[in-house]
Amino acid sequence: MKKYYPIFIVAGILALLPIGVRNNYAVHVLIMVILNAYYAVSWNILGGFTGHFSLGNGAYIALGGYLTAVMYNMFNVSPWIGMIISALIAGGLSILLSYPCFKLRGSYYTLSTMAFLYIINVIIVSNPKIFGLEFGGSKGLNIRWQGGFSRMQFVSKIPYFYIILVMFAIVMFVTTYIKNSKTGFYYAAICTNQEAAASLGVPVLKYKLRAQFTSAFFSALGGGFYAMFFMFLEPTRLLGFAFSTEIMLLAVIGGIGEVWGPVLGAFIMVPVSEYLRGALATKLNGLPSAIYGLVLMLVIYFLPSGLFRPVTSWVKERVKAVFGKKPAEERC
């Protein structure tokens, strides 16, 4: 149970933040931070735990968003239900796509995920209608405004904040559970040495597919939230290489394979880039992304395992120095 405490603490502190804040922009930034942390944590389930770097997670996010939006726009399916249905569809599709590709290793696997992202990109951008369903094509897809709790549409940003916070807490519970379960040890074995794991009786393919399903399911669920929060889906952004790469970057900068690593990455990088986007919006369009790239280069060069370990060990040392007693409980 102890290992779940940090989730309660972090989620509890975050839940208190919007109280008294009347500044919509601050709430928006908070939502963006948590949403990106959520995506990075979802990426980490496959990329971090099993070591299969996906550069195509945007495809699952987009799929979740589009399916939720289409079901809502055309058949009036409540997004609460639509999100879960689309996440299941995205998860199923991810298994179909990954089944052959899990034969590939390292960079080859990463390239295949990019190829799939590109294929889905071309299909959505060049077809306004797919099977008679309105997907919007290259112009993007607007989501109908009706308002109300059952339609997950609110005038204020605060409800969205609590929705994504709950989703974030759920994905953190799931990853903490996975990391400490038999499945997590199997993932770690696959990540370290696939052949050795297989020789010891780990069903490698089955567990990789399980990690892929979990990762795609949560990514797509986050996609559904994205659709309802922004009320607009832009294929060039969602299905572009930059979006998927940025998600991976957050996890890499924070520390892959650690439960809290991607969260740390998102909590550092997203406020910086959101601030720059706001402050320099029109003047220097590319600067926030350029800084993303630069930070990634520096982190990979100097701290290849990410920021999480150095930061936590530094904090522990400080705590030890100040209080002169046992350091705080290890986080995971």
Partner: peptide
Amino acid sequence: FTAGMGILLVNVAQM
């Protein structure tokens, strides 16, 4: 590392 460099170069060129 080169992925980061790619992002950096694209955006610097854009600026």
